[in-house]
Design a protein around this nucleic acid. Structure first.
Lengths: 285, 285
DNA sequence: CTGGACTCTCCCCCGGTGGGAGAGTCCACG
DNA sequence: CGTGGACTCTCCCACCGGGGGAGAGTCCAG
């Protein structure tokens, strides 16, 4: 067993890692040399450590964090290892999905902004029958879709008539957890009229009533996939501040043309509406 | 023009940026408040700065570096801005491509490694007619493809016969710039026999001759896309070090089944070969 | 005038690596 | 047995885009 030990430089060349990297891996306990001269601090590696070093290099190429690489190396069981790697694979897949969304938006921004036309209008009050949900910020799309399905199902089952497009309601301040609502405009709901709006619950269960006050709003229409909605919101809120207004939540989205209409995503049309206060120059309450 | 100024906290809420971010953007000169109280250091923002702040937030969501965002904000010309954004779009697209490759490899690693069988063999010497190219490490695939086309074209035009699969030759030490070569085994080339190998140039131009010495080699066969070749190399070099051998460049790839064979990528088969020295335990020169 | 909310600066932290300073070590050759 | 050059050591700083927190100062409504 008198295998000759390698200095850090030779080991680095063998494994295509930099000396800096090897020292770092030693420091964090990922790959310690078999021997460290106590007098000089020189690190000496054994040839069979090249296996782990090459594995580290491979997994780093796949962009795995060093901590995760350490876990996979430490866990001898292949199924534990596979579980960790599957987790990282899913994480990477999620990042790719996010990046693809970003790419679409970036392309759209690069090729001349769609130049949203934001208009100041007077919106009349609406009474909505809504379904609510709370979800993480990343899952809003999914949650809204499910709410829409539940809403139309409940409305259909209870025989309530509604008019116009479906609406989505979103809080002005996005926290970690987002409370979203999907609603449909109803003229009057049995057992609800005259009650305190916002907390009423229809007989069919799961349906609330939300009263949207009328008044001045800024509004714009977005064409295309929902992933590019931030562009429209950017235009909308830019307009809010440029006109010296103040936004009042919740923000409303009217799904003029959407998934229920059986058209291509590019044909979707969504109207964004935000109520605004015309604050005069005087102090605000 | 007596628009009221906003404290950093109010401005942060308006723009959905954190106070920390706003201070950072001030520090790096990306978004300076219109007024900083010289006595207290308090930052005061104007309402119309929300436009830039929202743009910053939007572009940060798209993962643009702050420096790039600063450039786009500073450059008033729309075409300059579009050029910058197109550059970032391309950068993002390239990252997605890289990540997709990583995802494929990671999936493959997670679902049980293909467990490459690495064998120690004796390879006989070969004389190759080669075409060379130098390229960046990221463009190796493209360069090799072009070399292969040029090689077969030149060989066909000069009537030289070759046998067996095409070979790729790669340096053992990957630098920034990689010098690659693609070759085909020729029994004897007119005007070349007996000459000093390695520097001879065939009449047809662009063709060199490379003499591969025979001897002990480690070799394994990779099935699938070239993007997953690193897995095979990992197995190959792991075996080199585990058996106490030393690799001698250049590394050779034999394209047993490849793009020329008109089959699906999954059917590609590539044999990786690296010459090894059996170094005894004695000192090395 | 006071208390609570707000803001200031300054420092440390994350991940993974590169660069460099200054000092110490190793080894082959003379 | 020197010596010189290559190698290695430890420390510190930098990147990027922030987050967390300490300790001190400020603002404003009641």
């Amino acid at each position: 067993m008198h295998h000759e030990l390698l200095t850090i430089g030779r080991f680095a060349r063998l494994t295509r890692l930099s000396v800096k990297q090897l020292r770092h891996y030693d420091e964090i306990g990922l790959l310690a040399p078999v021997r460290v001269d106590p007098a000089t601090g020189y690190r000496y590696y054994a040839a069979d450590q090249a296996r782990d070093a090459l594995t580290i290099a491979l997994l780093r190429d796949l962009d795995l964090p060093l901590a995760v690489i350490g876990e996979t190396l430490a866990s001898g069981a292949p199924d534990t290892r596979a579980k960790i790697l599957r987790g990282e694979r899913d994480r990477l897949a999620a990042r790719i999905t996010r990046d693809q969304g970003r790419l679409r938006m970036l392309s759209r921004v690069a090729e001349g902004l769609p130049s949203y036309e934001v208009t100041l209008e007077r919106e009349h009050g609406r009474r909505l029958a809504v379904v609510r949900a709370t979800c993480a910020a990343a899952d809003v799309g999914k949650a809204v879709g499910e709410c829409a399905v539940r809403l139309t199902g409940l409305l259909g089952a209870s025989g309530v008539r509604w008019q116009g497009p479906l609406w989505g309601l979103y809080p002005l301040d996005l926290e970690e957890r987002v409370s979203v609502a999907v609603g449909a405009e109803v003229a009057g709901v049995a057992g609800v009229d005259g009650g305190r709006p916002g907390d009423e619950r229809l007989d069919s269960g799961g349906l609330d009533v939300e009263e949207l006050a009328g008044g001045a709003v800024l509004s714009t229409v977005h064409s295309g996939a929902y992933g590019e909605l931030p562009l429209a919101y950017h235009a909308l809120f830019t307009a809010v501040h440029e006109r010296g207004l103040t936004a009042r939540g919740p923000v409303r989205e009217a799904y003029l043309v959407g998934p229920g209409d059986d058209v291509a995503v590019e044909e979707y049309r969504t109207r964004l509406v935000v109520a605004v206060d015309e604050e005069e120059e005087e102090a605000v309450a």
